[in-house]
Design a protein around this nucleic acid. Sequence first.
DNA 1: ATGTCTTACGGAAGACGTAATAATA
DNA 2: TATTATTACGTCTTCCGTAAGACAT
Lengths: 293, 293
Amino acid sequence: MLERTEWEVVLTLAEELHFGRTAERLHLAPSQVSRVVKSLERRVGAALFVRSSRSVALTSIGARLVRDLAPHVRGIEDAVRNAMESGRSPRGTLRVAFVGAAAGQQLLKAAALFGGRHPGCEVRIHEAQVHDGVPRLLAGEVDVLITVLPVRGVRVGPVLLSEPQLLAVPPRHPLAGRRSVTREVYGDHPVVRLPDTMPEESRLHRVPAETPAGRPVRRGPQGSTFAEILTLVASGQGVFPVGEHAARFYPRPDVSYVPVADAPPVDWAPVWLETNESGALRAFVECAAETAS
Amino acid sequence: MLERTEWEVVLTLAEELHFGRTAERLHLAPSQVSRVVKSLERRVGAALFVRSSRSVALTSIGARLVRDLAPHVRGIEDAVRNAMESGRSPRGTLRVAFVGAAAGQQLLKAAALFGGRHPGCEVRIHEAQVHDGVPRLLAGEVDVLITVLPVRGVRVGPVLLSEPQLLAVPPRHPLAGRRSVTREVYGDHPVVRLPDTMPEESRLHRVPAETPAGRPVRRGPQGSTFAEILTLVASGQGVFPVGEHAARFYPRPDVSYVPVADAPPVDWAPVWLETNESGALRAFVECAAETAS
DNA sequence: ATGTCTTACGGAAGACGTAATAATA
DNA sequence: TATTATTACGTCTTCCGTAAGACAT
């Protein structure tokens, strides 16, 4: 409808009322200004400026057009400028959630570094539970989630913490005295199930459907928060593989931990939706990576 | 800042979420849509859309940009559309003034024709006096003025009425009995002066500074309305050259009219400021020309 | 295998500057 | 005569369609 050059020329010429100065301000040759104005006038079907070699004046139609155009042009410029700032520099507020105490500690360090580095951007911290971390991310309630990998359908940042797996068992459980176990024991003892609001891939990574030998894993009761899972373990309803930090962050007299020799490490990383990427988000992930190393 | 194609593509793609359909709606090839989006994203410094070959989605930054952009783009389109309509088709209200009864009659006929032809446009009629017709036009109080030529610095429409000059004199004046007079008599009898708010050129056209023989014209008192001028004539303070119609429109027992043989005809025409030209104005002048012929 | 976005390439349209011209005071 | 807007002309950018490629379902 209206080319960029056209409104630039019209608005500038309406201010300057002089083709030469208008051209200068727009880094154009005066002839170009003349052509652009004339072409627009032909398209509009009315003169916007009355000009002789000695004077330039707005017509009433031109004046009206300028009056109507100016605020909207400013509005567009603001919108683009705003998008540019959101994309580049950290601004506004960033909502970050974590699942579990270890992630919380990582997050606090990252937030401290970020806060010092980008005072113009507020970080709002939320604690999520095992069952609602990913759903809240997908729902757009939070921008970044620090959680256990793998997570599908999201962008994944660098691993902040990688720890060996321990099996949580009741203190008097047959496995409690062992130096270490293998995942083969999942065929003999029921394993507490993760909430099914978690993606299946994530759950299977922690607790496979079959033991290494091919026997089916025995399914225990389902828990939806970490505390709930530990309580189920303590009450003898199942065992559950956790990251090493749990032994330090959740020391309970009614739960013992035994290394799982053949389980992959538990990796913690920030994840986010590609659609929510922004300058602030990128900067935060960078801070998290720095504090982790 | 933002090219026309860019916002067209961004807004359309945000609606369609499909490059092919977007291209179709904008009469472009899909490749062009892709290039435009990518180029804008590079300039903004952030992704506006997340896309695979199977799906297209707005990022939060893109969504914000679209939300901020849309109303202003509509505003610009409206502004241009409005200017186009003002330039082409008669719209809104047109303020027309006339000086003198003959012009008034012409105007009424023109307004009637115009009103029937362009019902969407209102014509507001004003009566102006000899002294304030042109000033009111210049001040922007009226859009068109039907008055006596010549008028400088304005656009002049076709002559609607051309009539011989008569000299208004008191009935008992030495010239009152003559078959006709020449402008030479202006050297012998004071001539009522037109108001000096009228452009000098206009006044000199009616009453030159010198007689044909080169004698100075005798300056009588100044009148600012036509009725005032006739009253000055009637009271014997001067003579005054008028158009032929005055004998019919202003018949007074105390004023007689004698043809002025060597005076140019009095021409009546619509005049207007070039800065106020519009579709309505052009249409009105056309109607006036038609009713005159 | 199909539908869809992206990249490479080449041609054509149009934007632009220079210089000459016209118009005004 | 000096200043300024406009037109003519040639160049060069960049816009854009075609076709091939990449990718996901």
